[in-house]
Simulated scan of single mutants.
Amino acid sequence: MSIAIATIVLGIAFLAGGIAAIRTGWLLPLQRRHVRRPELFGWAQIVMATAFFVQGGSLLLGDAGVRMGGSTIGMGLLFIGLLASVVAQMSRRTP
């Protein structure tokens, strides 16, 4: 139960960071030097927040099938968010 609550709290933190990056372009000081596209990075954080919400919600439910499905969907979303955040950190090529 405490792991589920921790993942949901982590999801809330990612959601807040993603909304801030999309609306204002604000990033954490450690990320400012690396991120080239703050809006894409914000969307990546929202996808990762959704992954944490799915995983935490599935852990709160008692059925083993639901937990396995939620974990699988959450990991897929987390991977998509990770790829989007890597793309957001890559520099744009100008011909």
Rank of each mutant, 00 (worst) to 15 (best):
M75R: 07
F53R: 10
G42V: 01
P38N: 06
M75E: 08
G70Y: 06
T24W: 11
L40F: 01
F52E: 02
G25H: 02
S91E: 14
L28T: 02
S91K: 12
S58R: 03
I80T: 08
I73T: 06
A51D: 08
T24K: 15
L82G: 11
R32C: 09
I46Q: 08
T72F: 00
I80W: 03
A64S: 09
L30S: 03
L28V: 02
G25D: 02
V47I: 15
R67T: 12
A51R: 07
T24V: 05
G74N: 09
L82S: 09
M75L: 14
L77C: 08
G76A: 14
R33H: 06
R23Y: 04
D63I: 05
M48W: 05
R36Q: 15
V86P: 00
L30K: 01
A64N: 05
F53Y: 10
V66T: 01
R32T: 13
G74R: 08
R67K: 15
F41I: 14
T72I: 08
A64W: 01
A64G: 06
G62L: 10
T50H: 02
G62P: 02
G65K: 11
L28R: 01
R36W: 05
A49Q: 03
M75A: 14
A49S: 06
R33M: 04
M90P: 00
I22M: 14
Q31I: 12
I80L: 15
M90W: 05
L78Y: 13
A64M: 09
G74Q: 11
F53K: 11
F79A: 07
L82E: 02
V47L: 13
T94S: 13
Q45K: 00
S85R: 02
R32E: 12
P29H: 06
L27R: 02
V87C: 08
V66H: 01
Q45M: 13
L77W: 06
V86Q: 13
G69F: 09
L78G: 03
I46V: 15
M48E: 03
V35F: 01
G56M: 08
M90F: 05
T94C: 09
S85H: 02
L78V: 06
G81F: 03
E39A: 00
I73E: 12
L28F: 00
T72H: 03
L83P: 07
V35D: 13
R33A: 12
W43D: 12
R93Q: 09
M75Q: 10
Q89T: 10
T24N: 13
R93Y: 12
V54D: 04
H34Y: 05
T72Q: 12
R92E: 08
R92D: 04
P38F: 06
V47T: 08
H34G: 04
A44T: 01
V54S: 02
R92N: 03
R67G: 15
A84W: 00
H34L: 10
